[in-house]
Design a protein around this nucleic acid. Structure first.
Lengths: 232, 232
DNA sequence: CCGTGTGAAACGTTTCACAGCT
DNA sequence: AGCTGTGAAACGTTTCACACGG
């Protein structure tokens, strides 16, 4: 996509790096709260479970924000990573499907704190509409289009059953939402230009089952731990 | 790790392939319910949103289960994929942390249906202990070690707040659990041989924010969709 | 002297293109 | 004739190893 990027400053950060920046950010914030002023790539790598060289390469895509012989200034790096991820501006989020999962998401502290504002909760079930969840009144799904426009929603979260996920997604897209986070166990079809990320609880379990089976394949002891040191 | 694999039959399926098998499986099951007897790689690829060549390569790691000129037998392929993922045997799962997320997980239909049995729900909060969630009585976290042994738990799910996630994980590992699914926003440290998978709600949002920002960078129209067809 | 920043090598994954089977 | 299975090329990611600067 975008075969010839017209803009001169296309820093082109690799997707794999983008996916790790939030992890670094969390570790940096934790260091900052503990009053640590500076951190080396080795230390930050250890606390985030990645290879130090990888961490340095990742950060180098953002610019040269470290000091040789010293490390990285924690506060400054927090700002740079936040800015790169787009967390210095606020993003309005709407969650559709206020079952247990929707409630968990609405109450999840990590959302409100950094850059994200839960602007609306919607559900199709009229017995749920009007409930207050995380201090927000649940609206009816029929108002989706109005809410997206009025609240300038930029990220739509689909936490509905599988059967209604695609239609909710379609309505988000038609209303102009170009980023969707999908928790329903279906593949959502969207036009090019719309970003979908999927979080699938049962897929993760199945991947674990695969590895668990492999472990059990050779030696039959169930709780066996390889006697090696943890070099992550 | 495992520098020289001692077992002769090390089929060595790529990690990327393993992560996609559950997606294929879901699509296949849906086809099966609709009575479709056979499916081509192109059709299955379209319904799962992957490249047909990739799908064929993925399936070829399991063996030659297709018929040239015809496609794949849906029922037979379901069996082969299930077996490879280890879903033909039952896995007992324990969920620790019965807040909204833990409840959502416990009630999630996808778990019970295929290969997984929720054998225990545990929480530290005594006002939650004794509640019935998804037909299971919530136990106290102090009984974790006993429950893991008695129920032969092979997968531990951590749905606690970040502050207690590591200690719960440690107790799982000490009890012999070698697969952990972590929903808490922390990096869990485990010895070699223990598999951890992380599901992090806020990280996914941050990745979306990054892409949303990039879209807004050049052209300033917020709800813009690239006029191309969907070749996924 | 220590730790960052980065070419270059190694590795893994995706995609192409077509040979080969039904 | 049609679709799978797969070498080989293209691409992306990780890791190594060291030059360079504070």
């Amino acid at each position: 996509m975008t075969p010839s990027t017209p803009h001169p400053r296309d820093r082109g950060i690799p997707e794999a790096t983008v996916a790790r920046l939030p992890v670094y950010l969390r570790s940096l914030q934790s260091l900052h709260e503990r009053g640590t002023p500076t951190v080396s790539s080795d230390a930050l790598a250890a606390s985030t479970g990645v290879n130090p060289a990888k961490l340095r390469k990742d950060l180098s895509y953002l610019g040269s924000y470290g000091t040789r012989g010293v490390g990285y200034d924690v506060e400054y790096l927090i700002y740079q990573v936040s800015r790169e991820l787009g967390l210095t501006q606020g993003w309005s989020v709407a969650i559709v499907g206020i079952g247990n999962l929707g409630r968990a998401l609405a109450n999840y502290g990590g959302f409100g704190t950094r850059g994200f504002r839960i602007a609306a909760l919607l559900d199709a079930d009229t017995s749920v509409v009007g409930d207050r969840v995380a201090g927000i009144s649940v609206g009816h799904i029929d108002t989706l289009e109005d809410v997206v426009a009025a609240e300038r929603i930029s990220i739509g979260v689909v936490a509905t059953p599988a059967s209604t996920a695609q239609s909710v997604c379609d309505r988000f897209v038609e209303s102009g939402v170009t980023s969707v986070l999908n928790f329903a166990p279906v593949v959502l079809n969207v036009p090019t230009g719309v970003e979908v990320r999927k979080v699938d609880l049962s897929i993760e379990l199945q991947i674990l089952a695969f590895h668990e089976q492999r472990k059990a394949d050779g030696h039959l002891s169930p709780g066996w731990i390889e006697p090696q040191d943890d070099t992550s």
